[in-house]
Design a protein around this nucleic acid. Structure first.
Length: 274
DNA sequence: AACGAGTCCTGATCGC
DNA sequence: TGCGATCAGGACTCGT
């Protein structure tokens, strides 16, 4: 599932190929994935526009157009955004195809259709409540000294639930929340309010470490994720806890426990994480 | 207000 | 072998 490292990898892959290029035509569009605006306006707004920037905020891909509008893509659970040669066969569940001037095609594919596409100015999208408010970027400057807000420090929620809350920290999903908790040696089932300052500090540092390492490995290909060119990432092999319930802890060898927090599969080591 | 639960959706996997 | 049931989960909506 695409989280911050996967989205960042895609953005880095696409940026040099999209920047300065013109979006010639919308070759196909499934209205079901288009959250805003109406299809007619979307096509009119995209057609002929030059790409000025390719960026990311949390798990949102933001493609800036010369019109100052943003083409925003969220990959949901199973989404991919790839650059393809036009003659490469279009796979099922491809919901958006943007033809690039000078060859190539940007394709958004998403079998489970949890992803979505939006177009509009930042102000327009925010005013319409189409972009959720997001917490700080874990890889942004100064995050290593980040202290969770009072609302979190007094929250009855679990640490895991807090890490998954995009309004608290942007970009963390189920995989890296578990990985960060393991590296920080803090149990994800703990109440957020109960964490001591030094434990918070460990979690914060651990989160940046696991995210950076995953980016270095070009993302985790668990099932659907692919980079900007359709290739798999190799971070899956280096996961310490996610998907490893019942298997030995890489640190102490005891059996990793699997449980469910906030509806999400959660894996931790009861011996290493307190 | 804040939090849990339900919802959407398809493909992989499992058991009979 | 084949088919139905189950599971996975990001972010949104809806109750409590």
């Amino acid at each position: 599932m695409p989280e911050l490292p996967e989205v960042e990898t895609i953005v880095r892959d696409l940026r040099p190929h999209l920047s300065g290029r013109r979006l010639e035509a919308v070759r196909s569009l499934n209205p079901l994935v288009l959250r805003h605006p109406e299809p007619e306006r979307f096509v009119a707004g995209v057609t002929g526009a030059e790409v000025r920037s390719v960026g990311r905020r949390g798990k949102f891909i933001r493609i800036g157009l010369e019109s100052a509008e943003l083409l925003v893509v969220h990959l949901g659970m199973s989404g991919t955004l790839t650059l393809e040669e036009p003659d490469v066969q279009v796979r099922p569940h491809t919901h958006l195809r943007l033809e690039l001037a000078g060859g190539g095609e940007l394709r958004f594919r998403d079998p489970r259709r949890f992803g979505r596409v939006l177009l509009g100015s930042e102000e327009e999208l925010e005013a319409g409540g189409l972009l959720p408010r997001l917490g700080p970027e874990p890889l942004g400057a100064g995050f290593s000294s980040w202290v969770p807000p009072e609302t979190v420090q007094s929250s009855l929620r679990t640490l895991k639930a807090v890490l998954l809350d995009q309004s608290v920290v942007a970009g963390c999903g189920n995989i890296y929340a578990d990985e960060a908790c393991f590296l920080a040696r803090v149990r994800p089932t703990r109440r957020a309010a109960g964490l001591r300052p030094r434990e918070w500090q460990r979690v914060v540092i651990a989160l940046t470490v696991v995210l950076r390492e995953a980016i270095r490995r070009r993302g985790t290909s668990f099932s659907d994720y692919r980079d900007g060119f359709g290739a798999r990432g190799e971070a899956y092999e280096s996961l310490m806890v996610y998907g490893r319930a019942g298997l030995p802890c890489v640190r102490c060898g005891s059996r990793l426990r699997g449980t469910r927090i906030a509806g999400r599969m959660t894996v931790y080591c009861a011996r290493c994480q307190r």
